[in-house]
Design a protein around this nucleic acid. Sequence first.
DNA 1: TTAATGATCTACT
DNA 2: GTAGATCATTAAG
Length: 179
Amino acid sequence: MIYINDNIKNNIKNILSMNSTTSIAKKLLGHLITFNGLSGYIVETEAYLGVEDEACHSYKGHHSDKNNSMYLSAGTIYVYSIFGQNLLNIITQDPNVPQGVLIRAIQPIEINQSMLENRNQHGYNISNGPGKLTQALGIDKTINGTMINCNHLYLDSYEFNIPNNIISTNRIGIKNKGI
DNA sequence: TTAATGATCTACT
DNA sequence: GTAGATCATTAAG
């Protein structure tokens, strides 16, 4: 039995719908994300700015079955697969405003047996990359299109670990690896 | 993007 | 010369 706190739900909704996507990306840093009972703090994010962003799937309004989740409301989970990896995004704006935040890296609260089995790596290699954290947590496309804090994936707006150094770079660059 | 494989470099017995 | 580290290439769905 999982107890969902309405306050948490509402708080996350506030964070997601009342800010620009770039500021949401920054705000999400340090928050606890949980899937399958495995948890970690978000340490790296990236904003995707819809139709103006060439790297974004919704560039120039591109709309297909694959990226339909991007056009749903704030809090929708968008999982897409590329290079054989699953990447995790959270939609941040109103319906038909296809913007989102890509979760690029997390710092596990603890590295347990499940994570070690999901991944074949040790240390910070467990989840220091967009394709790695989805493997570590076992996230796949089955949750694509579902709402955050409702089914499988939880984002805790209260459990918060203040990042000691927030840096911002252009798309490609140095990472805050945490720890 | 990730991870494995192969190539190149570096410091030693 | 060889182990170990570092760099380049490539395949994966």
